[in-house]
Amino acid sequence: MATVVSVSDGGIIVGKPKWRPLENEGNLALLLLLPTVALLLMFIAYPFVRGILLAVTNSKVGVIGDFVGFENFARLLKDPIFHAVVYNTFLYTFVTTVFKLILGLWLALLLNRDFKFKAFTRAFILLPFIVPTVLACFAWKWMFDPTFSVINWMLFKLGIVAAGAGVNWLGDGDMAMLSIMIVNIWRGVPFFAISLMAGLQTISPDLGEAAAIDGAKPLQRFWYITWPLLMPVTMVVVLFSVIQTFSDFQIVYVMTGGGPANATHLFATYAYQLGIGTGLLSQGAAVSLAMFPLLFAIVIFQLMYIRRVETR
């Protein structure tokens, strides 16, 4: 296509501007965002809206159902299993996050030192994080097996428990809770360790040396220098972990299926059991949705805290 070009008296070329919509930043941004927005709409927004719509009906598998308002939620408030689920989820999230943070930080501090085979060890640490969760959970399930438990065998060999009196890891409610926590911690520590180590590496070793010269002992150096400087990274890592743990599904589903006697149900597994297992779609949706405001509050609180830490 030929464009008309005229030469003005001053020798400046004046052409009829071409239509170039993509040179407008707004247009370009819209275009580039389009695929992401489409995906988000399809896989996040639609199921979310669908979930809300389900939660306010009484649909079951094979029954479209009618609008029932907040009846499903009212029922949940009176459901003792749901009460246990709320308690379990908070306990599970809190306990595992605390341990993942402590163990992860400890590992990160160790890994941040100079030693032989450092690169290898660092890669090795990531293993629990890389192994498919379901696969790892099956291994753990065997280790917690009432008859063939390798852990019980060790406790027996160490003389801690008598023969045949091994711990009933997954059969007892409290022990089952403890067991899934252990697995969650085992799986989550590498993420904490590696992320915190990356955070530690951004802290100049000069600061620790300056503090040592200033008279700070190792613990004081950690408390006054390392910990506050690591805080922004720590907060982000904890935030991620809390979101993941709060909505955890795989570990519980494979290890206990929520049992024994519903003792280890979390939001996600209970929602699944109600919605898919029992076919009460609308009640399952209500349980999932109940997770949302709680998680939302936690996240908002943490984000505000991160903001404060970062703008210090």
Partner: peptide
């Protein structure tokens, strides 16, 4: 800390 010295670093090393 027990040598009674003070050091000024190239990149200042301020906290």
């Amino acid at each position: 800390m027990d040598r009674d010295i003070a050091m000024v670093f190239q990149n200042y090393a301020l906290y």
